[in-house]
Amino acid sequence: MKKTNFQDISDLAAQLMGKGTLVAPVKEVAGFNFREISDAKQVDLNFYNTLMSPKSAFFPHTEDFVRYDKNKFVLDAQCVELNLKPVFLFGVRPCDAKSFEIMDIHFSGTGAVDPYWKKRREATTIFGYAFDPNTPADGADFYSTLNIGAADPEGSDIFMMKKGDELLLQAVTPKGETLLSSLSSLVDASKDDEKYFDDTIAAGHSFKTRFTCVDEKVIAKKLEDIFLKTEFWEKISDACLSCGACTFVCPTCYCFDICDETLFSKGVRRRVWDACMFTDFTLEASGHNPRTKVYQRLRQKICHKYSFHVRKYGVISCVGCGRCTRNCPVNIDIFSIVDQALKE
């Protein structure tokens, strides 16, 4: 285990920047966000959690596939190469680190492999960062409901936690081990630090956010059972504006569109985040749309995360980070809906 003084994080950042691309939390107008760091001093670990999830490190809002000239032959289209330096994703909260594992199942673990997700994932070393057990949970969070601890190193290559004015760093994977041993700005941690580290991980499990745990299979089954109870779905979607705020900030929402964006004759075929809350998400060429109503779309979102995903991949597609709740313009709280559904 290694450590550094909290004030010297910029030294660590500078060192990582020398080895590749550093993506870390930066304070911005509306909150913190993960950004590619150009100045080591930008890195700011004094955050609760970021506004946008770190999924964009592997699944950016836009990913270019092909560049084309629409006046030329299809043969002249150029496939866009993805040349990545090693990426260091720094300061990922335990619930978000868990989200990567859930997304892995979808993008590279089953069926066709998404080459972009896979390549970006392989190039990246994840520095997890424990929630501070002395800071109360944000009112929107519910990660402990999904069995994620406030200080779970799972999903990280290197796991970090704050101890007083020091930052402890422990390698979790061989990839993390190799990197950690090469970081000269760090010093060795003490026996005390190691004990603190283990104690904090354990304490993280007794740290409770909202709601109580419910077995995922029970939730999945219940939602399936009430799928056709239109009255329930209409009621819970009365307030929903059907905007995409919740899906765009979500660490486990992966729906996308493939768009051809042309300016004059030159263009790029790219994937762009899409949202099941948008009316045209399921609009077929013929004009037929199976989900024209708000309740159908919100039902899809909730059932997808808590039912279909469990059925298809065995896990709930939610990590309880609370971003959707925090950013909903009308304060819809996704797990409150699940909670209500269980009582139906």
């Binding site: 107008v29 946008m52 809002h61 504006l241 905007c243 995409g244 899906t247 765009f248 949202a275």
Partner: peptide, 11 residues
């Protein structure tokens, strides 16, 4: 900075 979530038009 817009993320095109369209919350503005929906609200």
């Amino acid at each position: 900075r817009c993320i095109r979530c369209y919350a503005c038009r929906k609200a």
